[in-house]
Design a binder for these strands. Sequence first.
DNA 1: ATGAAAGCGCTAACAG
DNA 2: CTGTTAGCGCTTTCAT
Lengths: 330, 330
Amino acid sequence: MVAAKIRDVARAAGVSPSTVSRALAIPEMVSPATRERVRRAADHLHYAPNRAARGLITGRTGNIGLIVPDLANPFFPGVVKGVQAQARDADYAIFIADTDEDMTAEVGLVRALSKQVDGIVLCSPRMSEDDVVSLGSETILVLLNRRVGRIPAVTFDNADGMRQTVAHLAALGHRKVAWIGGPRSSWSNRERSRSLRAATTAAGLDLVIVGHFPPQFEGGVAAADLVVATGATAVVTYNDLMALGLLSRLRARGVAVPDRISVVGIDDIPMAGMSSPALTTVSLAKERAGRAAVDLLLDLLAHPDGVLSPRRDLPAQLLVRDSTGVAHED
Amino acid sequence: MVAAKIRDVARAAGVSPSTVSRALAIPEMVSPATRERVRRAADHLHYAPNRAARGLITGRTGNIGLIVPDLANPFFPGVVKGVQAQARDADYAIFIADTDEDMTAEVGLVRALSKQVDGIVLCSPRMSEDDVVSLGSETILVLLNRRVGRIPAVTFDNADGMRQTVAHLAALGHRKVAWIGGPRSSWSNRERSRSLRAATTAAGLDLVIVGHFPPQFEGGVAAADLVVATGATAVVTYNDLMALGLLSRLRARGVAVPDRISVVGIDDIPMAGMSSPALTTVSLAKERAGRAAVDLLLDLLAHPDGVLSPRRDLPAQLLVRDSTGVAHED
DNA sequence: ATGAAAGCGCTAACAG
DNA sequence: CTGTTAGCGCTTTCAT
């Protein structure tokens, strides 16, 4: 039994295809009686319009593209879930592409994808600004966790997160804070380290930058010994994965957390609550961000010349757990 | 500048649209000279065929659907990456849907998706067999990590994994092994516990089933105290997430791993290598599985009446790490 | 309020 | 080897 087409419904309801189309899409343009008849025939035949055919004429695909650098990074599943949920509610399907941090192919991939979707949620911390801008001019684009020019974007309030973090650490008596940076080229890394600097300065704390490391568990491991050497009593890392690596290496070295050093991560990935000590972290509203990005995109699609550069800045909330404690004088 | 259409290319190359179509799709059917001319015109105009339009006539969308229960489960990103990589190579795009373990909507979701794709890779450990079968009759389907009837499937060699595990534990002197089960309704849970039973029996070890727990970190935490009470010196868990939860709770209780109890997980998720002690686990070829699933799907599409029920069983390889050690006599 | 006709962009017969 | 014709399934003028 092959799928029913609009003609079949039309025949079954005794009307023309155009009427079926209208009855389903613009019900108020058709008399209640026929509307009912069509409706009944349609779902009797399990009719669902062929989206490709519709797209051909409307120019809309009903699809949204989502580009993420690495699905294995536990930060992204939350975002993806948000995107999916919201897209599904609006009856959009999502095309996903994991670029695998492969920057070379990324632009081409987005271009290819862009022909099959109405808009793209782009999460690419390291694509060059020029590339982002040029994509932005060809495609309806919403940036996630990054801002470039006036392109619509959803971001997190890093400044507030860092302010909360510093307030917390200062209240615990810490005077010297170390920062373990992520990739130099990452937008959010720049944001976060800048925000942390501002916050520590404002609070009169010392800040020591330990350097740039891969945004992975291993990056945190690699940074640990350097952190200890700085004499800082508190550390903030670019993300949770690194914080977990740091925790691991500190334990291996016998450096007690939080007794000797307090550790704060960013992201609030699921594992953060499961480590021991449980990781204090700046929790980002990942799912909300995904939903917000889709909302933005749909707005953009609905109002092609609406407000320029809509932006959403989502909350960052410090989640205090066992990895931070009162600073000890030595 | 709007995207070039086949007519534009035809005009630029001084040929008819059909010739362009052929030159690009079936080059050997067109004279080398025109072929070249068309090619040049095409990429001069950055021409790319509209896939929706093509699909309308060929009946192929060039898309593959991928259904996973929960992207946040670290097992899946590996699979997704494999699927993506292989799909991309074959110039297929992938539609992904995270069902969020929502079994009620799942079937409907798959049905909806199936109209926009040529085939579906379905990873749904708990959908009822009846539902799977009925989907299988409507859609080209490849099951991942599960077998139902004669539907094409990619699975892991659980039996071999459990055999290796038991051999390892027996060699370390363990005599009594505990099993922490996952969801009762999950296909792979049944497989794994059955395989473990067979392997322990064959090796003359005692097996004690601790029960069924959520396939999460929390499930492992919940099972820990029960495990200790059994007096088993080794534990195998349904998956790594549970093993990590178990490890965490055992440490909290002061039960040394691997000195008092050896722990073995299954999956080899990234965090497994990062815990301390590092988790011994049965590593599954996740990415290969994703690729194999796509291969199978493409085969099925190419040979609609090829071999019935092609199956792939991928290797499961025990990865010995610090969480297993010599059994101590008490 | 409804139907007829045209056409979205492409490919697949069918001629030549 | 190449062009002409027809039509995939749908929406949207344009009539009525």
